[in-house]
C-alpha cells in the first residue's frame, strides 16, 4: 500500500498562524481535534445536521465536518477555544453560564460559535431570527429556551457597551 498523500497547509487558527500536515480525506473537524489538539469542537453526526462542530471560517459559520482540511489553506478559523479573550469570557459565554443555557454541554461550543457568527452580522436579532439562525444546532437537553434567552441577553449587552 502506498503512503497516503500528505498535504502541508498553513492557516490562522484563533488568531495564531498554524501549519499542519493532513490527508486529503481528513475533515477540518478531524484535523482540529486529532492533529491540532483543539477538542473543544465536537462531532455529533458528521453529516452537517447537528451543528456541534460549528466553526467560523473567515467570517462564516460552517460545519467543520463538511469542510475538508485541505480547503482551509490561507484562511482564518475561529473555534470555541478562540472566543474568550484570555481569561475574559466572551459575553455569549458569560450569558450561557448566567442563564444556565447548558446542561451536558456537548452542543455548547457549536451554539456559541454559531451565535457569535450571528451577532457579528446582526447585533440586534429578534427571537425568531435567533431561532432561525440556530436551527442548525441541535440541543437535546435544554429545549432551547435558556439558550435563546442567553443569546438575546448577550446581544443586548453587547449593543449597550
Amino acid at each position: 500500500m502506498s503512503k497516503p498523500q500528505k498535504l502541508h497547509l498553513s492557516t490562522r487558527l484563533n488568531g495564531e498562524d498554524v501549519e499542519f500536515l493532513c490527508e486529503a480525506r481528513q475533515s477540518l473537524l478531524e484535523v482540529l481535534r486529532d492533529e491540532l489538539g483543539h477538542t473543544g469542537t465536537k462531532e455529533g453526526c458528521a453529516t452537517g445536521d447537528c451543528g456541534a462542530c460549528s466553526v467560523i471560517l473567515d467570517d462564516r459559520v460552517v460545519c467543520s465536518c463538511l469542510v475538508l482540511a485541505a480547503e482551509v489553506e490561507g484562511r482564518e478559523i475561529t473555534t470555541v477555544e478562540g472566543l474568550a479573550d484570555g481569561d475574559h469570557l466572551h459575553p455569549l459565554q458569560r450569558k450561557f453560564l448566567e442563564h444556565a443555557a447548558l446542561q451536558c454541554g456537548v452542543c455548547t461550543p457549536g451554539f456559541l460559535v454559531a451565535a457569535r457568527a450571528l451577532l457579528d452580522r446582526n447585533p440586534d436579532p429578534t427571537e425568531r431570527e435567533v431561532r432561525y439562525h440556530l436551527a442548525g444546532n441541535l440541543c437535546r437537553c435544554t429545549g432551547y429556551d435558556k439558550i435563546i434567552r442567553a443569546v438575546l441577553d448577550a446581544a443586548a449587552e453587547m449593543r449597550s457597551t
Binding site: 452537517g48 451543528g51 460549528s54 471560517l57 462564516r60 459559520v61 460552517v62 460545519c63 463538511l66 469542510v67 454559531a114 457568527a117 450571528l118 432561525y132 439562525h133 440556530l134 436551527a135 442548525g136 444546532n137
Partner: peptide
C-alpha cells in the same frame, strides 16, 4: 436549504 452553516457552503 439546510442550516445557516449549510447555506454558507
Amino acid at each position: 436549504i439546510g442550516s445557516t452553516q449549510i447555506q454558507n457552503r
